[in-house]
Nucleic acid binder design. Structure first.
Length: 596
DNA sequence: GAATATTCAGGATG
DNA sequence: CCATCCTGAATATT
């Protein structure tokens, strides 16, 4: 609908505010209020002190740069009002610090955002769920970071993280829910069983069948099928599930499964016609990145939707009988993206393929263009992978570190020190949390390219594709699942100064109308799944940091990638200073229907 | 030897 | 005390 290159007119940003998304939420970041020095912005290991008065952000110092979204702006609105109402806040700011109960001398402190959103009626269930999950994932990344710095060894990060989360105001034990859980949508992905429990999808940690008593009878409310038993996940909408207990789990003694507990509950569902939530677990989807350390086995749990139990019988030889259940998926629910991806991968020809690699091999992996809506092709542009700086501009050489130990000692690595004494990435490449500015190691550092403090400078690693959306023109998505914190891509384009001379210039913008990379196709959303992070690595000019997109949550395959353009209403004017209005079409629940 | 499969042990919840 | 469609680390196997 909107065409990028048509919108190349005079967008003028009258506000000098710079707003960038926090990893936690569409939030009010330090940028909004002026910048803190990156060193003081880090809260990763502040001493524990709950009564610490909230830090007042500095009014404003040097305003670096405005993020100019692609001039092709599809749809949008602004989160501005919410920011004004203080509904959101960012990790870097005045959160309530919660100390981890680390039974060793070294205490870890995770700063959590204020808990206003919880229990607030105005926040819909979906936002709550997403916030809780983001919070949990943030804690996990923090713990992982601590583990990697060898401050401490947690066996089970998931269990450790839930302990922290429990201390957070707004966390409560989930009630038993029959049917869909408000805020959870078919296709949602999780990485730990604990996460299923947090959102109330499946409350027990290990058991496969969660049940509740309704009207005096025990009925099943959710099941997890993750390969522990030989279930049959036949084709599409049917599932044969194996009961719990007996020998199947690898017991020493053969034993018949008993019709009690979960087994009975599941059988009762036939009579009561109770819908059962099905969560599908997949194992070993880990994809070892090139040059990365050993890839951990990663399990993914996908919410498959509601099923009804239609049949129940016993199977097997006497002495090792098991219960089997036949479940049918209730019609009218969205198809799992996973299945579509499977079909797509199976089929030889890709439907709607308009271009096998729009980057013309400039990226490490091809980025194809898919259009199953009409015949349109993207408007031609020059594909570049790196930002192009103004001709007159000579980049300041960065001051690197001289680490030879892989920058492992974050108190000695000069780059880590600039990041407030931490390497802001986990060893798997995920960003730990949003910061005003991140310093990656660069060309003048002595560390090798495999250093963990170089997460976003090696280009795109996740297979992305450009596709035609219904309403918003072109968009970007992936056939793979993306886990929270993953680096997606840079926003590349022509860097230009907003004032006459380079020297006096206060603001810079990136214009991707004529040349750019995939980043120029990423649409706006009021509840985005990516966020933009400022990063410096190949130069030290804070006025024009790289703008790097990271996943703010787990993103299922085929879901469109979006970030918040961060316009404010009234911000954009035409040549004559007249306010311009653009409708937001992002369609999210908290959309305010105006991009600017 | 490294990548993968199997087993073991520790653990939270009900 | 019991058991569980978990996890991560330790062994075993290709």
């Amino acid at each position: 609908m909107t065409n990028q290159s048509e919108e190349t007119d005079d967008l003028t940003l009258i506000s000098d505010k710079l707003i960038v998304q926090a990893l936690m939420a569409p939030d009010k970041c330090p940028w909004t209020k002026g910048r803190k020095s990156s060193a003081s912005a880090s809260n990763s290991r502040t001493p524990r002190n709950k009564s610490l008065p909230p830090k007042k952000p500095k009014k404003k110092d040097a305003t670096p740069r405005k993020v100019l979204p692609p001039k092709v702006t599809p749809s949008t609105s602004a989160v501005h009002e919410k920011i004004e109402h203080g509904e959101y806040s960012c990790l870097e700011d005045d959160g309530n610090p919660i100390a981890l109960a680390v039974p060793e001398r070294k205490e870890l402190c995770v700063t959590l955002p204020p808990c206003a959103p919880f229990g607030d009626q105005s926040v819909d269930a979906r936002s709550k769920v997403r916030k809780l999950l983001k919070l949990f994932q943030l804690i996990c990344r923090k713990l992982m970071q601590a583990e990697e710095q060898q401050l401490r060894n947690f066996g089970r990060i998931d269990l450790e993280a839930i302990e922290v989360l429990k201390k957070y105001d707004g966390y409560s034990k989930p009630d038993a829910i029959v049917g869909d859980v408000p805020g959870v949508v078919v296709g949602d992905e999780f990485h730990f069983r604990v996460e299923l429990s947090i959102v109330g999808l499946h409350r027990i940690y290990q058991g496969g069948i969660d049940s509740a008593i309704v009207d005096g009878t025990r009925i099943a409310i959710s099941i997890v099928a993750s390969g522990g038993y030989p279930d049959e996940l036949s084709s599409s909408d049917e599932l044969i599930y194996t009961g719990s207990g007996g020998k199947a789990t690898g017991k020493k003694d053969a034993e018949d499964q008993k019709l009690k507990g979960g087994n009975l509950a599941l059988k009762n569902c036939i009579k009561t016609k109770t819908p059962v939530r099905v969560i599908h677990g997949f194992k070993g989807q880990s994809r070892s990145e090139v040059g990365q350390s050993k890839s951990k086995q990663i399990s993914t749990y996908t919410y498959d939707g509601l099923y009804v139990v239609v049949d129940c019988w016993q199977e097997g030889a006497s002495g090792s009988m098991v219960f089997k259940y036949k479940l049918k998926r209730i019609l009218g629910q969205p198809e799992l993206a996973l299945h579509i991806v499977k079909e797509t991968r199976m089929s030889k020809v890709r439907k709607g393929l308009r271009c096998p690699d729009i980057s013309l091999e400039k990226e490490r992996i091809p980025i194809c263009v898919i259009n199953t809506i009409d015949d349109a092709q993207p408007t031609p542009f020059e594909y570049i992978t790196k930002v192009i700086y103004p001709p007159s501009y000579a980049k300041e050489p960065p001051q690197g570190c001289d680490c030879t130990d892989g920058c492992s000692d974050s108190s000695r690595c000069a780059c880590a020190v600039k990041n407030g004494g931490e390497i802001p990435f986990n060893f798997n490449g995920a960003i730990v949390h949003a910061k005003p500015l991140i310093y990656e190691c660069g060309p003048s550092c002595r560390c090798p390219p495999t250093c963990h403090n170089r997460a976003s400078q090696h280009g795109i690693k996740i297979p992305l594709e450009i596709f035609k959306t219904g309403e918003t023109g072109w968009g970007v998505r992936s056939l793979s699942s993306i886990s929270s914190g993953s680096f997606i891509c840079e926003y590349a384009g022509l860097e230009s100064s907003t004032s006459e001379t380079m020297e006096e210039s206060v603001g810079f913008t990136i214009d991707a109308a004529k040349c750019g990379n995939v980043g120029r196709f990423i649409n706006h959303s009021c509840s985005p799944n990516l966020y933009a992070q400022n990063v410096l690595w190949d130069h030290d000019d804070k006025r024009m940091p790289h703008i790097m997109f990271f996943a703010a949550e787990n993103i299922p395959p085929l879901q469109e990638l979006t970030y918040h353009y961060n316009y404010t209403i009234g911000q954009v004017r035409d040549k004559n200073g007249v306010e311009k209005v653009k409708e937001c079409l992002c369609g999210s629940a908290d959309c305010c229907h105006r991009l600017y």
